[in-house]
């Protein structure tokens, strides 16, 4: 059974009294300890899908149909209390933009330990301040920070873009999730830093047996990190399959055009 399974969800937005359906029956599943990509261009609905899963849809949006099962439980019908117990704990997010996802006036340690405090409280776990700090240093080491103590005591502006992205990954790992949802990780970074972040994510999910749902527009990132891919276009999944198979032999016109549009490192003649 899949750890996460999205079944035929429809989402509508109502603005100025007009209702538009933006997700038209999206189904996808992420098996435990597997890495799955959801790829699409802007407006495809990949972010709305992600927000539906995390329960972060804006007020104007409504899920009109479908189920989202996490470990067999429907996230859409469970009590808010129970959902809160999962969000940020069993399933957590790695956000894209390190600058706007971190509070500039708090140190890394303050931010991470506060998140941990609330996660502990929701799960009914007891951990004192010292215990939380120990855990914060531990996750910073897990994301390969060479000096976790120094990073913990830093403010976000004192860190490079790559290090801030690592802090965001550490934040997602704090309460030992089983599913990571990564929204365009590393796209705001330089290409060499992005490569480091992608390798880190890959190493982490393998080491810790995490399921990963990677949401991105970058087909290269998909190939680097995920064995299975869903291609989204205009609010629907247009193609799914093993990443290698999709990239080698796309079946749908849209996927074919998308792949053909990607510039190749080998140049034009080889593509």
């Amino acid at each position: 059974m899949s750890l996460l399974s999205v079944e035929d969800i429809h989402v509508s937005f109502t603005t100025y009294g007009r209702t538009t359906e933006v997700l038209k029956g999206v189904s996808l599943s992420v098996p435990a300890a597997q890495q799955v990509a959801l790829v699409g261009e802007s407006g495809s609905g990949k972010s709305v899908t992600m927000k539906s899963i995390m329960g972060l849809l804006p007020q104007a949006a409504r899920i009109t149909q479908g189920r989202i099962l996490f470990d067999g439980d429907d996230l859409l019908t469970m009590r808010e209390r129970d959902r809160l117990k999962l969000r940020g704990t069993a399933m957590s997010m790695v956000f894209q933009d390190p600058m706007s996802s971190l509070n500039p006036v708090w140190t890394v340690a303050d931010q991470l330990s506060t998140i941990l405090k609330y996660a502990d409280r929701r799960l009914g776990r007891a951990r004192d301040r010292r215990g939380r700090m120990a855990r914060v240093h531990e996750v910073l080491a897990q994301v390969r920070m060479r000096e976790p103590e120094r990073v913990a005591a830093s403010y976000p502006v004192q860190l490079s873009g790559g290090m801030r992205q690592r802090v965001l990954i550490a934040m997602a790992l704090l309460s030992e999730p089983r599913l990571l949802i990564a929204d365009e990780p590393g796209t705001a970074l330089d290409v060499t830093t992005q490569a480091q972040i992608l390798k880190l994510l890959k190493d982490l999910v393998t080491e810790r047996q995490l399921a990963l749902l990677m949401i991105t527009h970058n087909l290269g990132v998909v190939r680097e990190t995920c064995a299975y891919t869903y291609v989204m276009h205009k609010g629907a999944i247009v193609e799914e399959g093993r990443t290698a198979a999709i990239f080698a032999e796309p079946q749908q016109d849209y996927t074919r055009a998308l792949i053909a549009a990607v510039p190749r490192l080998t140049g034009r003649d080889a593509a």
């Binding site: 992005q194 490569a195 390798k199 087909l219 998909v222 190939r223 080698a248 990607v262 490192l265």
Partner: peptide
């Protein structure tokens, strides 16, 4: 070596970079 690519042919073109402590 850092460019994310979409085919094996491109991947073959990327130079090997030595890892330092298991990291790029």
């Amino acid at each position: 070596a850092s460019v994310p690519v979409i085919s094996d042919e491109e991947a073959a073109l990327r130079p090997d970079i030595p890892l330092i402590n298991g990291e790029l």
